[in-house]
């Protein structure tokens, strides 16, 4: 973990309420795809945890959805402004289990952390399939970015306005060696049930600190109690306990 000041170099809307922010700063603590950062915002007490979409040199890319006060404030910021950011939080995805043909499944604002993962898996020369699930065509983002990496991309929309009609699980099939997923919990649960292989899933929880101090985001797993922010957010399929 590292605390440092980042300077915004770009902050642009991708859809009605999803934004991409690119920042320049010390990214040395970011060691894995699937990690997150925790951002301090003026006038708000708790930091805001946002998953890392990409990290290249000293440029950090975040894609976030405006869901409350913090993200609304982020969306109003402009290039040149600075943010106090804790970086290198969480465990991130373990690439060593991917096999020959990993499948990446993202739902809505769960899509961004899969981008850096896809990039790393492609760099290893693997065939990577990606399923991106959205409610409707106007909410789609990042599709071209995954395609540009050379991933085989399928988009699903709940209303059928683009791509395959239905949920991500309707496009999963059986041709993959391992899966990685991030998205809303009902989607994770559906993927868990539909999946034919082992895999890793990234979870969300309301956090206090984001670095393991407050025990605010704990969950039970088959391998013991875990803090989503510290031993997570990525869990292995085999250790997950679903609570109703």
């Amino acid at each position: 973990m590292k605390q440092s000041i980042f300077t915004i170099i770009e902050n642009a809307a991708l859809t009605r309420d999803v934004w991409r922010m690119r920042l320049r700063g010390d990214t040395s603590a970011i060691t894995a795809a699937g990690q997150f950062v925790n951002i301090q915002l003026d006038g708000l007490f708790l930091r805001r945890p946002i998953s890392v979409c990409d990290c290249e040199g000293d440029v950090l890319t975040l894609i976030y959805k405006v869901v409350g006060k913090g993200t609304a404030q982020m969306a109003k910021m402009s290039a040149g402004e600075t943010l106090d950011v804790l970086t290198g939080l969480g465990n991130g995805y373990d690439l060593s289990c991917a096999g020959e043909h990993p499948l990446l499944i993202g739902g809505g604002v769960g899509v961004p952390p899969l981008y850096m993962l896809a990039k790393q898996l492609r760099a290893r020369g693997l065939r990577v399939s990606v399923i991106l699930g959205f409610n409707t065509e106007s909410e789609i983002f990042c599709r071209e970015d995954f395609a540009a990496l050379g991933c085989d991309v399928t988009v699903t929309t709940v209303d059928g306005s683009y791509g395959t009609k239905g949920f991500v699980t309707d496009a999963m099939g059986a041709d993959y060696s391992y899966f990685y997923t991030c998205g809303p919990e009902p989607m994770l649960k559906a993927v868990y049930r539909a999946s034919k292989t082992s895999g890793q899933m990234s979870f969300e929880e309301r956090m206090g600190c984001g670095f393991g101090a407050c025990m605010g985001c704990s969950c039970k797993t088959l391998t013991g109690n875990k803090r989503i922010c510290k031993e997570g957010p990525v869990m292995r399929k085999e250790e997950i306990i679903w609570e109703d």
Partner: peptide, 20 residues
Amino acid sequence: RFGNPTPRIAECSAGMINAV
């Protein structure tokens, strides 16, 4: 002790609530 169910954290003006 595992503690309470989540969410355990809420933000407030100049503070927070925890129910760990």
